[in-house]
Amino acid sequence: MLDQLFMYLSFPFVRYALIVGVLIALCSSLLGVTLVLKRYSFIGDGLSHVAFGSLAIATVLNVTNKMLIVLPLTIAFAILILRKGKNAKIKGDAAIAMLSVGALAFGYMIMNLFPSSSNVAGDVCSTLFGSTSILTLTQEDVWISGILSIIVIGIFILFYNRIFAVTFDEDFANAVGTKANAYNLLIATVIAVIIVLAMNLVGSLLISALVIFPALSAMSILKSFRSVTIFSAISSTICALLGILISILAGTPVGSTIVTVDVILFGICYLIGKIRG
């Protein structure tokens, strides 16, 4: 098995997949803790469906670089959800549910009305649950993912204290001069970027798992925000690495394999937390 693994690692596309997978998992885990604590977990799910609808539009229009359409639309809807969610007649959770189902249905409809290939069902399935496209990444894709990941990590480190304050007590943060709404929008924008990056890795339906499970695993056994964030980041990257390697060796779907490893880790952490009381 080791000989087979080293043989696969000699191919550039396998190394590209590992690099991008680890970077995306790291970025997802950093903001995942904040989303879980702020009870914004479903924002990731809603935005992933918006990304699917945007991808369907880009596919129908035959846009070469689909990120030019998918990324701006996903960011715009992320900002719209947070700006209007609290004050609108339709509250945040209902708005996200409507947006999620509507975008999913819209994307599937236009892909059927204007098919770009003869296998529409296969295209939709691979977009929703991930596909082998993570194993066909080019060097340009790796550079784009790397640059966006560095920006996300840099933003998290630079604004760590403010994100921490907004996560736990928005009212107090506002009282001491921190613009909570602005940082909520920053968090939503960064999450939108992460979701767009993660679509090739795990598919639009499984992105929420990549964001939520590492955070929940860490929170099962640790208490402080910093320790939870660090553990979440480390465990998420390890799970992504193991998931991709298992997928390559066993021939299983990449996204589903990564999420399965995350679920197993959560189960272990949950049991440890119960035993420790």
Results as ranks from 00 to 15, higher is better:
38 K>G: 03
238 I>K: 03
164 F>K: 13
272 I>L: 15
176 V>R: 03
49 H>A: 01
262 D>T: 00
102 G>T: 07
1 M>V: 12
239 C>R: 00
271 L>Q: 05
158 L>D: 05
68 L>W: 14
116 S>C: 00
254 V>P: 01
179 K>E: 12
268 I>Q: 09
196 V>D: 12
197 L>Y: 10
168 F>Y: 13
144 I>D: 06
8 Y>E: 02
189 T>W: 04
108 Y>D: 13
226 R>I: 11
18 L>F: 11
86 K>W: 05
123 D>A: 10
58 A>Q: 06
142 V>Q: 06
187 I>N: 04
193 V>W: 03
146 G>A: 10
176 V>A: 08
221 I>W: 04
179 K>L: 08
205 L>M: 15
176 V>L: 07
86 K>S: 12
126 S>F: 13
31 L>T: 03
167 T>Q: 09
257 T>D: 08
96 I>L: 15
84 K>A: 02
243 G>R: 04
192 A>T: 07
68 L>K: 04
97 A>W: 03
247 S>L: 07
39 R>D: 14
217 S>Q: 07
251 G>Y: 05
120 V>T: 13
261 V>W: 01
75 I>V: 15
108 Y>E: 12
254 V>T: 15
91 K>P: 09
140 E>C: 00
184 N>I: 02
188 A>S: 15
193 V>D: 02
103 A>L: 06
242 L>F: 07
219 M>G: 08
27 C>I: 00
21 G>A: 05
210 L>V: 14
101 V>I: 13
259 V>I: 11
13 F>Y: 15
176 V>K: 14
217 S>W: 04
116 S>V: 14
103 A>F: 14
89 K>L: 10
67 M>P: 02
161 N>T: 01
253 P>G: 08
83 R>F: 05
114 F>N: 06
107 G>M: 07
56 A>C: 10
182 A>C: 10
104 L>G: 09
171 D>K: 14
197 L>C: 06
53 G>C: 13
47 L>T: 11
135 L>F: 14
224 S>H: 05
125 C>L: 09
181 N>A: 12
63 V>M: 03
2 L>F: 15
212 I>A: 10
112 N>W: 00
217 S>Y: 01
252 T>K: 03
137 L>A: 06
130 G>L: 02
125 C>Y: 13
244 I>V: 11
33 V>K: 04
157 I>G: 12
124 V>L: 07
237 T>G: 13
145 S>D: 11
161 N>M: 03
95 A>N: 02
196 V>W: 06
12 P>L: 00
79 I>D: 02
277 G>I: 00
123 D>K: 01
198 A>C: 04
267 G>K: 03
226 R>L: 09
36 V>K: 08
259 V>N: 02
68 L>N: 10
247 S>C: 12
117 S>T: 15
206 L>F: 13
154 G>E: 07
204 S>F: 06
274 K>C: 02
17 A>Q: 00
66 K>M: 10
256 S>D: 00
187 I>Q: 04
166 V>K: 02
163 I>M: 14
134 I>W: 04
13 F>W: 12
96 I>V: 15
